[in-house]
Design a protein around this nucleic acid. Structure first.
Lengths: 143, 143
DNA sequence: ACATGCAACTTGTATAATACAAGTATATAC
DNA sequence: GTATATACTTGTATTATACAAGTTGCATGT
């Protein structure tokens, strides 16, 4: 029962977490901010959705998503489509402009990651991607 | 030139980043908060250091570390040792209490990570740890 | 030796992302 | 038709960060 890998993972995750906080909040890095990017991505790839559904999906408070959605709407990246069956609800639908920005931003982000992992082998990248995905799934399962 | 692994990494990193922000800030998870943990860890494993050196090490603003250091001192986890050669400077030295808390906190954190990765093979953990480390190094090199 | 600028640290202020709580409007159940 | 639940918004607090200004001590050039 060697504890070393867990030690490493624990520490490196803590370091990464802080670095990501700093970067994603203070060093704007695409066109879109973090939340806009993830929201747009979600809507674009899984279809229109309401605030509640998105909050559940991301495990964030509804109020957080509500504000982020307003911001997106204000910038014209999404429109609210009122739910015809429920006067309280609506769904967020991505606009052409929104899809455009998402595409551009995604490209920039992938470029940057590509630069960062410049000297990684294809295998390493693939493996790392898989493990990250697995980690995120585990995190979502637990919380 | 398959872009898929980069796509995955990019997206999963964005997701992870947000999840870590939320968890590390709002769901206290050890005894120590994030910054306290990392600062204590650094001092404990690399020896006493001043605010400037720590800020450099972590790539954070000096003011950020200054406040975090004050908080640690207030809780009695570190003491300031004035630099005999430079009246402006001092070094932060971990106290017995601090070392104790660090130990306890580390154990808790590693337990949690262990639970999270319960069904991972030893190989996966090892590989993931290595890749995380490599990633953090790359990040620090770039910024 | 002293003025000027540099360095280490602190403190003030702003920003961003989050959470929790209270409020509004609508829907549903009885 | 009233009480309760739901979808969303808005108000407020917290936390981690950055940047800027301030203080005190150091180093150096003349």
């Amino acid at each position: 029962m060697d504890k070393r890998p867990l030690e490493t993972i624990e520490l490196e995750m803590a370091i990464l977490s802080r670095r990501l906080t700093s970067i994603s909040t203070y060093k704007k890095y695409g066109i879109l901010d973090h939340s806009a990017y993830l929201l747009l991505h979600q809507i674009a790839s899984n279809g229109s959705a309401g605030v509640k559904a998105l909050a559940d999906e991301f495990h964030l408070d509804i109020s957080t998503i509500s504000r982020q959605a307003s911001a997106l709407e204000q910038k014209g990246y999404v429109t609210r489509i009122p739910d015809p069956l429920d006067g309280r609800a609506y769904t967020l639908q991505i606009t052409e402009l929104g899809a455009d920005m998402l595409k551009k931003d995604t490209d920039i982000r992938q470029d940057k990651i590509g630069q960062l992992l410049e000297d990684w082998s294809e295998e390493e990248r693939e493996h790392f991607g898989q493990l990250l995905q697995k980690l995120n799934e585990a995190i979502f399962r637990v919380m």
